[in-house]
Design a protein around this nucleic acid. Sequence first.
DNA 1: CGGCTGATCGTG
DNA 2: ACGATCAGCCGA
Length: 223
Amino acid sequence: MTERHTPRTGFPLPWDFYASDGLTLARDLLGKVLVRREGERTAACIITETEAYMGVVDRASHAYGGRRTERTETMYRAGGAAYVYLIYGLYSCMNITANREGNAEAVLLRAALPAFGEEALLSNLRRSSRARKAVFPESPDGWSGKEWIRRLSGPGRFCAAMGITRADNGRILYEDPGFFLTDAGICPETVLSGPRIGIDYAGEDREKPWRFVWNAEADGWRR
DNA sequence: CGGCTGATCGTG
DNA sequence: ACGATCAGCCGA
């Protein structure tokens, strides 16, 4: 858990990286590195799991049927914007918009591997756990190894670790020096797809295999 | 393990 | 009311 160097992983990915359709972007995001600077602190992680939400015709999408509200407005932005919303009154979920303005396609970030700034990631997780302490007095502590990685899995936990909240909604990932994606030269090989999680209400779109998981360990990634 | 449950609040 | 969730607990 020692910081050795700042990630010299190159430059923010440009706007056209996000210009493809949601399904393509969902796959392309695997292995990319999300970097977030907050003051002095920098945290970064490697994206390992995504879900595509395919606009106004997708029954699972917040924008289904062309729904345009204050919340969903961000989804209609051109590719490269962060769409962050609060779910169950407790957790933040982060999407990245895809395609052109008006398409309302977006990719939910569901899991990642810690890449840099583990001090910040860990303290963010501790803080978010503390919020639950009022209800569950026993606070988990001393996470390590497998347990630690597991804590970056799940859209809510991922956002909690990275410190992402609705304050980040609408940030443009290709022109924000404090919040961007970069290509670290990671090329995921072992990628599985399957149905999306938690969308039982989506009728015929429930089974669409629009969730993508990179099995990093199978490609030789160890900690 | 797997399945259930309750927390909690913005959005519509 | 309800949800693109999570953690804890219970039973097997």
